[in-house]
């Protein structure tokens, strides 16, 4: 199993598998969020189900493990690549017409991490962490928390910017994961590109609905 650490393709395999798992999680998270638009009661039921129960805690730990692996391997690969590039930079820069997202995956990743810190503080800390440790910050009804936060337009803007970074990250990340897994070729490359764009767009719109919806409702109340 050492090849997952000491070969370039092994390290990239870890990046692609954790990445695909995180995309699947995003799709699940997005579906959950959308429930709130239709029924606050149903949303609160989901929140209770995913609160301080043992299976939710195990799943959270698994998810955290995936995220940590993805970030750690991403950082490691980026540092190695900087070293492989060498200290001398091109004076005439690099004018190859590559996609912007493809060249800025690490920077996009850092922006996503920053957004994640805000997000965990806004919701996860109050919905699960505080409940686990029986802290006074614990909130039992998730719907109220979400609606209160997004009635502040500034927060909605921050979340939308965060979603834009995730969109760029995914448009490159999804097809790139398939390429690394060897599941790509001349025929599938254009198809996978389109699939990546569609999945990334579904995720972005699905997540954006909640903050936009409650900001609009907040403005009219």
């Amino acid at each position: 199993m050492y090849w997952l650490l000491n070969s370039s393709i092994g390290r990239k395999l870890i990046m692609s598998i954790t990445g695909v798992c995180l995309v699947l999680f995003l799709l699940f998270h997005m579906s959950m969020n959308l429930v709130l638009v239709f029924s606050a009661e149903a949303y609160d039921m989901i929140c209770e189900f995913l609160g301080a129960n043992w299976y939710a805690v195990v799943a959270t730990l698994g998810l955290a493990g995936l995220a940590v692996l993805h970030i750690a391997y991403g950082t490691w690969l980026t540092l190695q690549n900087k070293q492989a590039r060498g200290a001398d930079k091109y004076a005439s820069s690099n004018k190859t017409k590559t996609e912007w997202a493809a060249k800025n995956m690490y920077v996009l990743g850092l922006i996503i991490c920053l957004g994640l810190v805000i997000h965990l503080w806004n919701f996860w800390y109050k919905m699960q962490f505080a409940e686990l440790l029986h802290l006074p910050d614990a909130v039992s009804e998730g719907s109220g928390l979400v609606i209160a936060l997004f009635s502040c337009p500034a927060y909605s803007v921050i979340y939308l910017a965060w979603l834009a970074a995730i969109w760029f990250h995914l448009t490159h990340g999804i097809w790139s994961a398939f390429q690394t897994l060897g599941l790509n070729g001349r025929t599938w490359y254009p198809r996978l590109k389109i699939i990546s764009n569609i999945v990334a767009t579904i995720i972005m719109i699905g997540f954006a609905v909640v903050p936009v919806w409650f900001t609009i409702i907040g403005l009219f109340n």
Binding site: S8, I9, L77, N81, R85, N94, T96, E99, H172, T180
Partner: peptide, 17 residues
Amino acid sequence: VLKMDELGFGNCTNTRA
């Protein structure tokens, strides 16, 4: 691939450059 890694080439990130 082993030799490529050993010689200090970087990890491909599929930029297509």
